[in-house]
Structures are given as C-alpha cells and as structure tokens.
Nucleic acid binder design. Structure first.
Lengths: 259, 259
DNA sequence: TATAAAACAATCAAACACGATCATATGCAA
DNA sequence: TTGCATATGATCGTGTTTGATTGTTTTATA
C-alpha cells in the first residue's frame, strides 16, 4: 500500500464524524505504527488534519492546523517566564487606561498581559505587534489600529522604512512599553529593530508607561531605547529592591507596584 | 472512545436545552466518572461550557449557541469547505508567481491555500489579511508587507479610512483575489467592507488573478467588486461546467483549471 | 437541623500513545 | 548490477490518558 492510498483512507475514515482513532487506523491500514504516525504528521503539515492524542480530527477554529498557527519561538518561551508577576503588572497597567481612550501598546510578553484586562473598556489600541493584535482580537469592543510596513519575524512586529510615516495619523495620551532591561542609563531592548520601532511610538505619546517585572532590573545589556527622563510611569512587581525603588523615584518617575 | 469524540458528544448532548446532567453523560459516554469530570474541566478551561453541580451548561445567559463557539467565525467554518478544490487551486495559483516577485494577496479561504506553496520563492507579499499573514509567517524567505489602518474583525482585514493612502508605496504586477460568487455581472463579495479593500488593491495591480472553486459560479449574491472585464486570469477546479467555461473565455479571461 | 446520597477533587498505578533513533526494505538512476 | 534516496519497520525512553480509590464538599430530604 502506498502513501497516497493511506492518505485517502485516513481522510475517508474521518468521514463525517471528523475523527479517527489511532487504533482504528491501525486496523484499517496495513501499516506499522511508525508509518501511520508519519502519515498523520504529513497530513497535519499540509493543514488537512489536526493531530490529537490518540488520533486525528478535522481542523477547526479552536485548533487550526499548524500552518495557520502563530508562534514565535523565543517569544513563546519567554511568555511563561515570571508569568505571575507579568500578569499582575498587566492588570495594574490596564487599570491606568480610561474607558474609550486611545492608547499605544508596544510588543512584549509583559505588555501582552495587559490585553485580557482591556476587555470592555472600548478603547482604541495602536500597536505594531501581531502578538498584541492576536490577544486583542477576541475583544469585540476594542478597536485595533496598525501601522504599515514590513513584518519582522523575530519580534513579530510591523516596521516601516526609516523616514516613512507609517502611522495612520495617530497621537495618543499614553504609550505602554516593555523592556528587556532597565538601568540607570534607561530602558533597553535586546534587538535594535525594536528600538527604532519604539522610538517612533515614544514620539507620538504624551505619557510613557513602562511595564517591567523586577528581574529586569538585574541585567543591563541591550540597545538603549530611551533615558529614564523620558519615562513617566513605571509598573513593576513587589520583588524590586528598596534601593532601586528609590532611584526610580529620584528620577521623577511614578512607581506602581502591582498586586 | 477518545477525548475528542467525548467532547463532541458532550457538546452535542447539551444540544438546545443548554444543559447536560452528569448522569446523562455517564450513560452516553462509555467512560469512567473521573474521565467525564476531566473532560468537563477541560471544556470549561477552554470556555466552551460552564460546570455546575451535577452537570454543565452553556457559558452565559445571553449566550449564542456554542456550535458557533465551537467552529468559530464564519471564516473558520469556511476553511474546510471544498478544501481539496481550494488546495488544488491554491497550488495552481502559486505556480503563477515568479521567484522574487512582489505580489498582492487578498484575504479569503481560497487565497489562503496559496500560501503553503509560496515557500522558497522569496517573494514579497502585500496583504491586508491577517489570515494570510499568519499563514506566511513560518516561511522565512517570504517578505510580508502590511498597509496601515483599522482591523475589521469579521473579515480579519486591515482597512484605512477612505481617501487615506495606507499602502507603503507599493505597486505589484499581480493581484490574487478570492470571491464569494461569480456571475456575468462580475465577481462579488459577501461584505461591502471587502469591496472597498479590494478596489484599492485592484487599482495597484497590473494583472488581476481570481481564485474561485467551481461552487462559486452557482450563487450570485453579494456586493459587486469588479466586472469580468477587469479580470485577467481565473483559476478554478474541474467542477466547472462547459457552459460557464465558455462564457469566461468569451469575456477574454485566461482560464486555468487546477489539478 | 441532622442525615444520607450524590457529586466532587486529589492521588496513584497501569495502559497507551508518542517521538526519536536506528535498522531494514523498496524503488530508481547510473 | 551498484549506489543512492526514500519509505517503512522495530525498539526504547518519555509523557499522556485513563480508571480505581480515597476522602471531602455539596445537595436533597426527613
């Protein structure tokens, strides 16, 4: 029996129920477990099915085939890092948003945690991060605006060529921004691409609000985005030392400790 | 019986009454109490049901039938419709793309199927559809460009206010476009929002290539996007009747039959 | 309120499914 | 035929799913 025959049989077996068990396939196809798994893997890669433990089913909205899934690898890993702190910070930051306000949100795993708490505020959000867009997508009331430009994969952000005005005539009272590290020099990002993207957002905002969990104060490597003097508010968690807290306040930054 | 099957059965059992008792499930599903509870817990975590003592019910009072929730947006439902035909059409259309060419792809479930076949062509793609963006994301070599604007949820497209130039100075030799229906009046879309989005793309393209499976020729309802005279190439499947094929050719459109 | 019955959550061991790796077989071209 | 690429099969360690058991919480009824 050839691969194409088995593929046909598999899709056929799923029929109208939309599911075949691995056992079922083992009985129908005269092939070894390994081969069956390989067939399923191939069909999934083609987007024709979605594998589940013990079998396979038709792709649905909840579980789109992997070809349609959004996943930045380093990003996904970083999401779970200090998750609890990030969630608390996200909640506290979202509380700063007035109903029906227009805001800007920079991409990042911490700012991402704001999104669930924006539901029902009917605000407008300008962002260049597709991760943020995806997170806001289910919230009916939230209006999402995007700048034009090229998509940068590593960071999943949209960025226009230098000098080009990519924002749809937008100015916002508040910008929410993440950071890879914070030190006395200011806030830093790991990738230089992020820096130029964030500089543009900063220029359009009246108030810059930085979200960073306390671990970000320990490292200080990366490209400098802006000095502490450009920051208006800093939202972080309880893990911050008294010393850093004082230096933040000395820089005339409003400090918010989440949770 | 596998987890996926049980989930389907549970949601089915809730049917229109919007409630299943635990007892009922115990009778229907051939599974232990522990497994049933686990299934319910999982479904609740996914937001598909709400557990109550002795059973489960639909999420909220004002709740639309969860069959919607299950299969998501109309877009997701439509993805698997005529999937084989759409995949064949997508492959044939992708073959029209020259290596390193800059093209535009309109949103739609048929154009979506082009994306897997664009891998390795190193082309630039301008699209206003986030579905297309997501599909192209894993392809390292493909450069993705986005226009600025507001996100329209039903269609998942980005659209700028009328009169505003939202495209990053872009002009392309080819536009790939889907359709809800095709008739002698031209091609039609279900939503008027799509029409204005597509009009802008058409104005920037030298050649308009329409992707539509043969079922699209049977209906003819919707907002008219453009007349047949504006179309240069039509890619469809073998299911088209000889009569329609002739009328297409009479309109001076190049006809490509996939697979 | 007191009591029994049902539903529930947590835990554990066994069965099963899975991916990775290596070995074998099959097909195809030189 | 030989050499090579691809497809298939077998094995093993790991992770997931499942049903049984236990003890706790909730509901119904006297």
């Amino acid at each position: 029996m050839h691969a194409t025959e088995r593929e046909t049989l598999i899709l056929e077996a799923m029929g109208k129920t939309g599911f075949v068990s691995y056992r079922d396939l083992e009985a129908r196809l005269d092939a070894s477990p390994a081969t069956i798994r390989r067939d399923l893997a191939r069909l999934e890669a083609q987007g024709k099915i979605v594998r589940v433990h013990g079998g396979a089913k038709w792709p649905t909205a909840d579980e789109p085939p992997p070809s349609l899934r959004l996943s930045g690898t380093p990003f996904d890993q970083s999401i779970t890092l200090n998750l609890a702190a990030k969630q608390a910070i996200g909640r506290a930051a979202a509380a700063l948003v007035e109903p029906a306000e227009g805001i800007m949100i920079d991409g990042g795993t911490t700012t991402l945690q704001m999104c669930p708490h924006l539901a029902g505020r009917d605000c407008q959000v300008l962002t260049n991060s597709l991760h943020i867009v995806n997170a806001l997508l289910p919230q009916e009331g939230t209006r999402i605006l995007l700048p034009s430009g090229t998509l940068f994969r590593e960071q999943n952000i949209v960025l226009a060529p230098a000098g080009e005005d990519s924002m749809p005539r937008f100015h916002a009272p508040k910008l929410f921004m993440g950071a890879a590290a914070i030190g006395s020099q200011g806030i830093m990002q790991a990738d230089a691409v992020l820096v130029s993207a964030e500089r543009r957002l900063i220029d359009r905002a009246e108030k810059v609000i930085v979200l960073a969990d306390s671990s970000k104060f320990q490292s200080s490597s990366g490209a400098i985005v802006c000095g502490l003097d450009e920051i208006d508010v800093l939202v972080t968690d309880q893990g911050i030392t008294q010393e850093t807290a004082r230096s933040i306040k000395d820089a005339d930054i409003e400090l918010i400790l989440a949770q």
